[in-house]
Design a protein around this nucleic acid. Structure first.
Lengths: 218, 218
DNA sequence: TGCAAATAACTGACCGGTCAGTTATTAATA
DNA sequence: TATTAATAACTGACCGGTCAGTTATTTGCA
């Protein structure tokens, strides 16, 4: 019989400091697979175990929810990424490999990937999202990687390429890999493995696609 | 005085075989910068010089518009792309370079780029879009490029890489380049030039990032 | 301790605006 | 005049946001 135990489920959870987070968690899942416009506030409320009105106790508007969502996810990213990037001395290939692997590893986590996906999808409608993501994530992470490349060039490890453009050659494949799989359901025959992608990519990146001199080219 | 000329602007344009196309043109522009959900049918109508009701003479629903839109844009792509890709014999580097340049050139055109952007944004909501785009474009273009790579490997021009994964290394940078510029307004200091990106990328792709043996590495 | 009074957390019915889709009517053409 | 193209007015569902009221929890006081 339900209710026969004592203190089964507290109806109210007082001093709800963590209510906002619960709302954001619920909203993230819904936004992620329905988009912002198609998610009703009442859905968010229900999934968070609340009523619609209560949501408005914590957030002034629906848009405020998505903004808070991104802000929460995005702020801690910066520190972590930067800390790692700076740590590598010597051959910058190691640093770049590590950075790439870490990036791929992070984005393999659905909960993390959901945020940039959301930002990209809703950027045109809510420019604040793109701005925030750029400021908090991209403007910190990208220059860090670019500096790694530049350092490699200056130290004579790399050829004289444009570091900023090379950055794109570096991270691009991860993006396509994700987009093909996620949006179009296209994976490599052997399955979607980031590790294999990264290793293959690093091979090409550092040593090129062309065969070493001896083999077969005329 | 407006209206003083004779037959200035015909109020009605009868027997409009090209009306559907005009509606699609209008819808594309609006969808592209407001998204599907935020575009009202009446906006589309107004931009096409029509009234809302007339739109429903040609399309049964709003969703039918976006589907027709993508279908129209997507169908002719296949032939063109395939024709070019098959044409290259000899060193497959030429074929790949050409394919990449052509791809980049095409996507530099805003009218063309608008379609995949739209598809990606609305894919979750209207899976038919993603399906159609995949079937008509990706499933034809990607294998063609992959075959180019595989041919290069078999003929001994390229090292023994995974062609399917390498495909991603190949086209990835174009995607990031576009996304950074378009969504986040991040361009290289010297300006968004696809040509420079492609040349830089091809350098790395074929010959690698690492410096040739002599220069500086210990 | 027991018992109000006070307040914090929460609810759900409701309002107003919006918008996809429909229909009654008018204009053009043959 | 008959037919078709086009319109403008209309409808009804839907949804973000509000608010008067309810329920749980805490506080003050005896």
């Amino acid at each position: 019989m339900p209710g026969s135990e004592k203190s089964v489920a507290p109806k109210f959870r007082r001093r709800a400091d963590d209510r906002p987070d619960e709302v954001l968690d619920a909203a993230l899942e819904l936004f992620a697979d329905q988009g912002f416009a198609n998610t009703k506030v009442e859905q968010i409320a229900k999934r968070a175990g609340l009523s619609k009105g209560t949501v408005y106790l914590y957030f002034p508007s629906k848009q405020a929810i998505i903004e808070a969502l991104v802000r929460r996810a995005v702020t801690p990213v910066a520190e972590r990424a930067l800390a790692h990037a700076g740590a590598f001395a010597g051959d910058p290939r190691n640093g770049i490999s590590a950075a790439l692997r870490q990036l791929a590893h992070g984005l393999a986590d659905v909960r993390i990937l959901a945020i940039p996906k959301l930002v990209v999808r809703e950027a045109a409608l809510v420019p604040e999202l793109a701005q925030m993501y750029r400021h908090e994530v991209l403007d910190r992470v990208l220059p860090a990687i670019e500096m790694l490349i530049q350092r490699g060039i200056d130290a004579g490890y790399f050829r004289q390429v444009d570091a900023n453009l090379t950055l794109r050659s570096l991270i691009g494949p991860i993006l396509v890999h994700l987009m093909l799989a996620d949006v179009f359901d296209i994976s490599p025959p052997e399955g979607l493995s980031f590790d294999r992608l990264i290793e293959n990519h690093l091979t090409i990146l550092f040593d090129g696609l062309s065969a070493p001199e001896q083999v077969g080219a005329p």
